[in-house]
Simulated assay, not measured.
Amino acid sequence: MTDRKAETAASKFDATVTSADWYGQTISDRNHSRTLFADLDMTEATSAGAVFKECTFRRAKFNCSRHEASAFINCTFVGCNFYDVAFNACKFVGSVFEACKFDATSIKGGNWSFVGLQGADLRSADIADVVMREADLTGVRCDGGSMTGVDLSGAALDRGNFIGCDLRGSDISTIEPDTVALKRAVITIDQAVMICEAMGLVVRAS
């Protein structure tokens, strides 16, 4: 489990980019590392194979942008807006999100292991077939949302709200029923058996 904070006093950057306008641009050729992006506008931008490593994005606008097989490795996102963003087969391993908005965000495939999404509001996000191993989802809000086929093995889910959430096909083996809200969540028979066993029940066919 990652314990990296969203911001640390020791953070250092090799470059700083302030108020850059990437509106509608194709940024597939971008390769940045240890860069601070402040007030970046990436609205309606598209990327394929872009790479960002150990970068920090403060108040960035990703609205309506589309990203295919791009990588944001060990990055920090503070106060960013991801309205109607599509991430397909992208990699966010080790990245941390703080006070970000995920309205109508689409995340399909890719690797989001070890991400920090404490308290994130993912109610309107559509998350499918994503690897989120050992992610920190403490206090996450997914009520009424969709997290199907997600690998949540080893993830921290304490105090998470999954009321009415579609969790079918997801690995929820680390869920402790007494520490999360699961009322009306949609799950499969196999998942139901696993939750019952986690509660100490003995499940028999007859």
Score class of each variant (00 low, 15 high):
35 T>M: 09
153 S>A: 15
60 A>C: 15
103 D>F: 01
167 L>W: 03
135 A>Q: 11
134 E>F: 14
195 I>E: 08
53 K>S: 15
9 A>C: 11
177 P>L: 10
189 I>K: 02
198 A>L: 12
184 R>A: 03
85 V>T: 10
154 G>C: 10
96 V>M: 15
36 L>G: 07
134 E>A: 02
206 S>L: 12
126 D>N: 09
187 I>Y: 00
131 V>Q: 09
53 K>Y: 04
115 V>M: 08
177 P>C: 09
192 A>F: 09
153 S>T: 11
32 H>T: 06
113 S>G: 15
126 D>I: 13
51 V>D: 02
25 Q>Y: 02
82 F>W: 04
66 R>D: 01
26 T>P: 03
37 F>R: 08
17 V>Q: 09
190 D>T: 10
194 M>D: 07
35 T>F: 07
190 D>V: 05
86 A>G: 00
75 C>V: 05
139 G>E: 02
198 A>Q: 13
155 A>Q: 05
206 S>E: 07
46 T>N: 14
181 A>Q: 10
172 I>C: 13
40 L>S: 13
68 E>N: 05
60 A>L: 05
137 L>R: 06
94 G>K: 14
149 G>F: 10
126 D>A: 03
66 R>E: 01
188 T>P: 08
169 G>W: 14
130 V>Y: 03
122 L>D: 00
202 V>S: 01
204 R>D: 01
178 D>N: 10
48 A>G: 06
23 Y>I: 00
80 C>E: 06
111 N>D: 13
